[in-house]
Simulated assay, not measured.
Amino acid sequence: MQHTLSVVTVVVVGLMVGVEFAVGVFLNPIFEQLPDNGGLAARGAGARILGKVMPVWYISSVVLGSVWAALAWGDAGAGLVATATALLVLSVLMSIALLVPINSRVARWTEDTLPADWRQQLGRWDRFHYGRVAVIVTAFALLVLGIA
C-alpha cells in the first residue's frame, strides 16, 4: 500500500511540476511573442483553465504527501517526504498569497479593460511563478529520494 501511495504521489507531483515548468519556461515566453497582444488572450485563457484545475492538483499533492509521510513515519526517507510535503504546503500558500490575486485579474482582462500596468503585473506573476516552480521541483526531488 505504502509503495503504491509513494508511486502515485511522485507521479501526481511530477506531472504538476511538468505543467508548471512548461508554463513558466515555454508557454508564457511563447505567448509574449504572439502579435497584437495575442499572448494576453492566451494567458487569460490559461488563467481561467488552469485556475480551475491547479488548486485541486496542489491540494491533492499535499494530501498524498501527508498520508505518505504519516504512513512512513519512522522509516528511512520519511523525513524527506515530510519536508517535501511542507514545501508543497508552502507552494499552496505562495499560490494563494502571491499568484492567485494576479491570476484572477488576468483571467478577466480584455483588450478594453487592460490596466496601465498590465505588463508589470504579468512580470510579477512570472517572477512569483519561478519561485513556486523552484519550491515544487525541490519537493518533487525530495519525494523521489524518499522512496525507500
Rank of each mutant, 00 (worst) to 15 (best):
Y130K: 07
T85C: 03
I136K: 11
L142C: 08
V7M: 07
I59K: 14
R105S: 14
N103D: 12
F26H: 06
T85D: 03
I96N: 08
S61A: 12
A69V: 03
A72Q: 02
A139V: 10
R48M: 06
D36W: 05
I30C: 13
R108N: 15
Q33C: 10
R105I: 04
W73G: 11
A141L: 15
G79S: 01
E20D: 15
S91L: 14
M1Y: 06
V7E: 00
L5K: 05
A116E: 06
Q2M: 08
A69T: 02
T9D: 03
F128C: 04
A134D: 13
M1N: 12
Y130D: 10
K52E: 12
L99T: 08
R124V: 10
Y130M: 14
A139P: 11
V106R: 11
W109Y: 02
W68H: 00
L40T: 10
M16N: 11
L71C: 08
W68C: 00
A139I: 07
V13A: 11
A84F: 02
A116V: 06
V7G: 05
M16Y: 09
F31R: 15
A82G: 03
I102L: 06
G123R: 07
A134P: 13
G146A: 04
A22Y: 03
V12L: 11
E111G: 06
V106A: 11
Y58L: 11
M94L: 10
I59G: 05
A41Q: 15
A107F: 04
G146Y: 02
W57H: 09
T138Q: 06
S104Y: 03
L71H: 01
L90H: 09
L90W: 04
A86V: 04
